[in-house]
Design a protein around this nucleic acid. Structure first.
Lengths: 215, 215
DNA sequence: TAGATTGTTAATCGATTAACAATC
DNA sequence: TAGATTGTTAATCGATTAACAATC
């Protein structure tokens, strides 16, 4: 359901806006505050909350702390999430060092790569050989993985990950991966994101009233 | 218009599928072939093409080469696109080395950073100080920039980029940026993408019929 | 010609928004 | 109480899909 997907993304945005509002001293927030902060309508905020059975107070809005906690638990952020990264090239190693993940309760447990030169068990996030994927994943009970390998090997890597027990994947390879239907795949295509900026920038330059709102 | 945005993203996908089909020897393709390759309906393909005045032959489908060329020109890929990257931390430097951009006719002309230690004019993609942003952008007539700086300084960086003449931005900072309405901004939030995988993976584990299709 | 595929219109589907009764 | 905000229903809006006439 695509509805749910967009709604979940908005919940994440509400959560991040709430953290900022809390820092500003907001003890309670109204749907209107959140709407402004995130750039949606107040009705959208209330509709989203009602879909996930989040309730407030008829005249007093929502308690900031309670709301953040509820969103965290909904989004699976009540416990540390362990994730592996397969492919330790440019993108993969950037993700392994990316501070924001840890701040959000996401821990990169290990990186994996075929080419021996990358393998480095001693670094902060160990980089292991693909041979060790299966045992590492089952030993550490990891369900989530990131694919940051070249397009040509992405499908084979996904198959190995699924065989090892991975259930959810964030894929940076610019290709449609095939997997059993109980496997969750989310694609990020950086070239496509930049191409879309290029297209719309040109479109606006040619025809300034072609207003566009970014995703 | 959000329609247009989704349509453009699909055009990009068609283009990338077409390159693969051409390698397989397809001289002409049908809307049905593209639909299968990209995972949409044939009607969607034809509708998208009609929106952008791309026509085929009533019984002979579309000429692969001509179609690729048309899509490239629509997407602004007929000339080399020069882009700058501001912020040379993990994500920024990964993007500067990312091979797929060059393969798609996107050239990272320079990176920019405040902290002096990063500055390195001699490397393949020069890394310059923020002081040089304005002159570099106007000298090289660059319209597109990537923001890969920490959240706290993202708005200030955007303001400088806009002042320097940048018209379109791909933003990796997890925050809603404010800009004049003729500036195109596209946001990529990596934490949010991973969080969404975590959420849906949990949802499917709890309730296997909660089928989800990735973006 | 008969068959197949496009291009487009109309129908459907789903998501967002507006409005308002409930109520604190 | 009067005023304000939620939670939800109904209305709107827009995107996708189905269907089919045109035609190669």
């Amino acid at each position: 359901m695509i509805t749910t997907k967009n709604a979940i993304i908005r919940l994440s945005r509400y959560k991040s806006a709430l953290a900022r509002l809390r820092n500003l001293g907001f003890v309670k927030v109204f749907s209107d505050n959140l709407a402004d902060a995130v750039g949606v309508t107040a009705a959208q905020v209330r509709k989203d909350f009602s879909m996930f059975a989040i309730t407030g107070h008829r005249r007093g809005g929502y308690q900031t702390d309670a709301l953040i906690e509820k969103l965290n638990s909904l989004l699976g952020k009540d416990s540390l999430q362990k994730v592996i990264v397969v492919g330790c090239g440019n993108i993969g190693s950037a993700l392994m060092k990316y501070k924001s993940f840890e701040q959000e309760g996401i821990k990169i447990a290990a990186g994996f790569d075929t080419s021996g030169s990358f393998v480095k068990k001693s670094s902060e996030v160990p980089i292991l050989s693909m041979d060790e994927l299966q045992s590492f994943v089952s030993k550490h009970k990891i369900h989530i993985g990131v694919i940051a390998v070249p397009e040509a090997v992405a499908q084979a890597v996904l198959d190995q990950m699924v065989a090892a027990g991975i259930k959810g994947v964030l894929n940076f390879a610019p290709i449609r991966l095939r997997a059993p239907e109980n496997i969750v795949i989310n694609n990020v295509n950086l070239v496509l994101e930049l191409e879309s900026v290029i297209y719309f920038t040109r479109a606006v330059e040619k025809n300034p009233q072609a207003l566009v709102e970014g995703g």
